[in-house]
Every structure is written in C-alpha cells, then in structure tokens.
C-alpha cells in the first residue's frame, strides 16, 4: 500500500503552495489584494498541512504539521532567482509570473487530492476520504483565484 507515500507527496506540495502564497504576499505588498488574499489563502494550505500531518500518523508517516510556515533552502534559491528576474522585468511581469506559479502549484495540489481521494475510496477509509472532500474544494478555489487574478491583471500589464 502506498497511501503513506501519497500523503507525503500531498503534504510536500501543499506546504510548498502555502510557502509560495506567503512569498508572493511579501513580494507584492504594493498590490494590496494580492498581499492580503495570498496570506489568507496560505492559511488554508497551512491548515491542510496540519490535517494531513495528523492523519498521516495512521499511515506510518511522521510529517511536520508546520511545514507550510517554514522556508527551506530550495525556497531561498527560488527567491534568489526571482529577485534576479525582478530586476530584469517590470514588477507587473513578476506579478504575472508569481501568480502563474501559484496556479500551477495549486493545480499540483489539486491532483494530489484527487489521487488521495481515489485511494481512500479503494480502501474504504472514510476519514481519509472526508479529509479530501473537505479540503480539495479549497484548493480549487485557490486555483480559481489565481486564474482570475491573472486574467484581471494580464491585459494592463502586457499592453502598457
């Protein structure tokens, strides 16, 4: 059974999404809706991470419940790269790139929830299925937010 692995992967991707959202919030403080909402939406992912870590104990996984709030070495590298990009491009383009990244990461998390839900149904683990049912809609809302933010911002940034 590979449920533990699926949970580990979901935990990783969800924590990464949380950190990505925190990152863009910090970086785009002057775009107030991004600043405020990205923090709110990071909170959703942080809650997911805690719930995943909790349930994962039953599948032999010891996962960090606070992984969504910490910044790892990879993040620092990404950050460095982003800063370089920031110097090269306009802040508008950086915003588009960053929100695109949120969209892609959220899409990954969404797929991971799908995988988990499929597995949970296969082994008839109701708790696991409930977890996916409860949290996956949040991920879809995060995706929709990122997508709408891109649509709303793209024209002005790209034509001006």
């Amino acid at each position: 059974m590979k449920i533990g692995l699926a949970l580990e992967e979901l935990h990783r991707s969800e924590a990464e999404l949380a950190r990505e959202l925190l990152k863009i919030s910090e970086r785009h403080k002057v775009d107030h809706e991004v600043f405020h909402l990205a923090r709110d939406l990071a909170g959703w992912s942080q809650r997911h991470v805690r719930e995943i870590a909790e349930i994962a104990k039953h599948y032999g996984q010891d996962l960090d419940p606070d992984a969504g709030t910490k910044r790892g070495p990879v993040d620092a590298l990404v950050e460095k790269g982003s800063e370089l990009a920031g110097h090269l491009k306009s802040p508008g383009l950086l915003l588009l790139r960053d929100v695109r990244e949120v969209y892609i990461k959220a899409a990954g998390v969404s797929v991971d929830w799908e995988l988990l839900a499929q597995a949970a149904q296969g082994i008839k683990h109701k708790d696991l299925l409930d977890l996916a049912k409860r949290n996956h809609p949040d991920t879809l809302r995060q995706m929709r937010w990122a997508n709408s933010k891109l649509k709303e911002s793209a024209t002005q940034i790209l034509v001006s």
């Binding site: 107030h32 649509k151 709303e152 024209t155 002005q156």
Partner: peptide, 21 residues
C-alpha cells in the same frame, strides 16, 4: 467594448496610476 475582465475598480486604478500604467 472591453469585456476581457471586470471593469477596473478605483482602488486598482489607483494602483495602475501608482505603477505608471
């Protein structure tokens, strides 16, 4: 008639004025 996104609200317009667009 622009309809690719919702018409821009004033707080966003202020942001666009701030970033010079």
């Amino acid at each position: 008639i622009p309809h690719y996104s919702p018409p821009t609200h004033v707080m966003q317009m202020m942001r666009y004025a701030e970033d010079g667009s």
